[in-house]
């Protein structure tokens, strides 16, 4: 999914860079407000993990490459799409500058596809499907059409699928290859890769929930509940 240098004209790259920088500034603002000594190492570890996941690439004939992204996972763990924008930006810088995966001029476009689209689609799809709400006692539960884990799976799949579609649209607009074929190949491959991404995202988040629930942002409210012995919410058990 990483678009290499030279595949998009410079003037289009500039447009993508401007949009990406606006999102990055917003992400920095979010970081300054929300990150503490517990979140900072988590963010760095997640960036390292996503970097490792992204290195598993599959060449695609009419697209660039196929791989997992992890933006939805980050956005759901932190309960913020800005976290995904920040982490994917870090990963893209190292991938682009050290490993030549992606590009420098196309980094803006890649950040929009994977960080912005992946993070926002992943987070808001999960939110729409699970509908997490804060009860009167401060506990977060879901009232959506899907359970917590199914909603995470669907959100992860949709995030990677739409990111790939966006990359195909950008390459089509650049005139690098026909839009129809691009959509078919990029969409088709990533619809399959999305299934793996969904399964792995669900297992990773459920493992975190079991072993280190304090790392998941939605549990911060639960912790407040645990401190309160009078709480008796039946939907979400306290730790």
């Amino acid at each position: 999914m990483h678009i290499p240098d030279g595949f998009i004209p410079l003037w289009q790259c500039l447009i993508y860079w401007i949009i990406a920088i606006i999102f990055l500034i917003m992400a920095f603002r979010w970081g300054r407000k929300n990150l503490n000594e517990k979140n900072i190492p988590l963010m760095a570890v997640l960036a390292a993990g996503i970097f490792a996941i992204m290195t598993i690439n599959i060449p695609i004939p009419f697209g660039s490459s196929g791989h997992m992204v992890g933006a939805a996972m980050v956005a759901i763990i932190f309960m913020s799409p800005w976290a995904a924008v920040m982490i994917i930006a870090l990963v893209l810088i190292v991938e682009g500058l050290v490993f030549g995966d992606g590009g420098i001029t196309t980094m803006g476009a890649n950040l929009i596809n994977m960080g912005v689209c992946g993070g926002f689609v992943g987070y808001y799809t999960w939110k729409a499907l699970y509908k997490p709400y804060k009860g009167s006692d401060g506990v977060v539960a879901g009232s959506g059409i899907l359970s917590k884990w199914w909603s995470i799976g669907v959100a992860s799949w949709l995030a990677i699928f739409l990111s790939a579609i966006l990359a195909a649209l950008e390459l089509g607009w650049a005139g690098t290859f026909p839009l129809g074929l691009g959509l078919l190949f990029m969409g088709g491959y990533h619809a399959m890769i999305g299934i793996f991404e969904a399964i792995i995202t669900v297992i990773v988040i459920s493992s975190l929930e079991k072993i280190r629930p304090d790392l998941l942002s939605w549990n911060k409210l639960k912790r407040a509940e645990a401190d309160n012995p009078n709480s008796d919410n039946p939907e979400v058990p306290s730790k």
Binding site: I203, S207, R212
Partner: peptide
Amino acid sequence: LRQVAYTIAMMFLRSY
């Protein structure tokens, strides 16, 4: 597939 996912989860947790 589940073992791969557990490996990734363990890698995250141990590194974290």
